[in-house]
């Protein structure tokens, strides 16, 4: 995974609450067996009508907005555990999502794919929406190391929380798999020390 650096960019405002992963990437696009190509179907049914024409009202179709930061309403990423939602956001070009609340599984999936979920207070989220409404080219700066998000033109700033382990992973570009494999000896020892697990017999067709 790439190392996560300071991100300064314009943002796309999606002022809707409870955006679920079925909207981020509808189930019918989950038949792929690789991670490519999900970006073009990100928010598919909000972005395009059934004839494939862009729906002008939707923020991703409005040229005044662009950038690698998505600002979204409360409780972003609820619903299905599909990691395809994080892949789609990443493939589209988003490097961070800012909201006042994230669903657990989405948050984990995003972190595992280098898309930073930045949880801010509802007040700060409002300020972000207002700043972008006033000036769509407004720049937002997200500093992972300092756990700080700021609105550049007016200097409004807020700190955000992130799991320290995850933060280290992102800053250094490590991932959990390498870490767990380095622990296999301890895992084996744990298995030896406990009992009571019965494996399912091998039955295959």
């Amino acid at each position: 995974m790439e190392k996560y650096k300071i991100l300064t960019d314009t943002a796309v405002p999606l002022d809707t609450e409870n955006v679920d992963t079925d909207q981020i990437i509808p189930a019918r696009f989950l038949k792929a067996t690789d991670k490519e190509g999900f970006g073009k179907n990100l928010f598919r049914d909000w972005r395009f009508n059934k004839n494939g024409q862009p729906i002008n009202d939707f923020v991703l179709n409005q040229n005044i907005y662009s950038g690698s930061i998505l600002i979204a309403g409360n409780n972003f990423g609820c619903g299905s555990s599909r990691e395809h939602a994080a892949w789609a956001l990443k493939a589209y070009g988003f490097k961070a999502v800012v909201s006042s609340y994230f669903a657990d599984i989405f948050k984990g999936n995003a972190l595992n794919n280098g898309v930073l979920p930045v949880q801010v207070t509802p007040e700060f989220l409002n300020k972000l929406f207002q700043a972008i409404e006033k000036q769509p080219r407004e720049k937002i700066c997200i500093e992972l190391e300092a756990q700080k998000i700021s609105i550049l033109s007016n200097g409004e700033t807020e700190n955000f929380e992130i799991d320290p382990y995850k933060k280290t992973c992102l800053l250094h570009g490590y991932d959990d798999i390498d870490f767990l494999i380095s622990k296999l000896e301890a895992i084996e020892k744990f298995e030896d020390e406990r009992n009571g697990i019965k494996a399912v017999p091998q039955v295959t067709i």
Partner: peptide
């Protein structure tokens, strides 16, 4: 509990997950 695909890979590789206690 439900997990994402990266975590499916973790469990394949180690039969473990890195998770914070809820």
């Amino acid at each position: 509990f439900g997990i994402g695909t990266s975590q499916v890979t973790q469990v394949f590789a180690s039969q473990c997950l890195l998770v914070e206690k809820p």
